[in-house]
């Protein structure tokens, strides 16, 4: 799965803001942002990755266990799907 074209992530004053740069991507009444961990996963998803790879990356980078990483990746991906930010 991968971040859909037309979305970019920018860090502004410690806030990770998702910006829609195409007419289809633009959501006029919402500001979407991520925490630091979410931004970490977003950057992996920009290149494309599946759930196991995302969970493994979380474990390498952060102090967390496999079960927590897998569960949180699931929840996070559902959040992104809910806003139609990812393909796959």
């Amino acid at each position: 799965m991968k971040i859909k074209p037309g979305y970019i992530l920018r860090e502004v004053m410690d806030i990770f803001v998702i910006i829609g740069v195409g007419s289809e991507a633009y959501s006029p009444n919402e500001i979407l942002s991520l925490n630091e961990t979410g931004a970490f996963l977003w950057r992996i998803l920009e290149k494309g990755a599946e759930k196991p790879e995302l969970a493994a990356a979380l474990q390498r980078e952060y102090d967390t266990d496999p079960q927590t990483a897998e569960r949180d990746v699931d929840v996070f991906l559902e959040m992104l799907r809910g806003k139609a930010l990812i393909d796959g």
């Binding site: 009444n29 919402e30 500001i31 942002s33 925490n35 979410g38 102090d63 927590t68 996070f76 992104l80």
Partner: peptide, 19 residues
């Protein structure tokens, strides 16, 4: 190894006429 915080997506909604 960084301190872990669950990844989150924040959605702030505002009225169109605030812009």
């Amino acid at each position: 190894m960084k301190k872990y915080e669950a990844p989150e997506l924040f959605v702030d909604t505002f009225a169109a006429d605030t812009m």
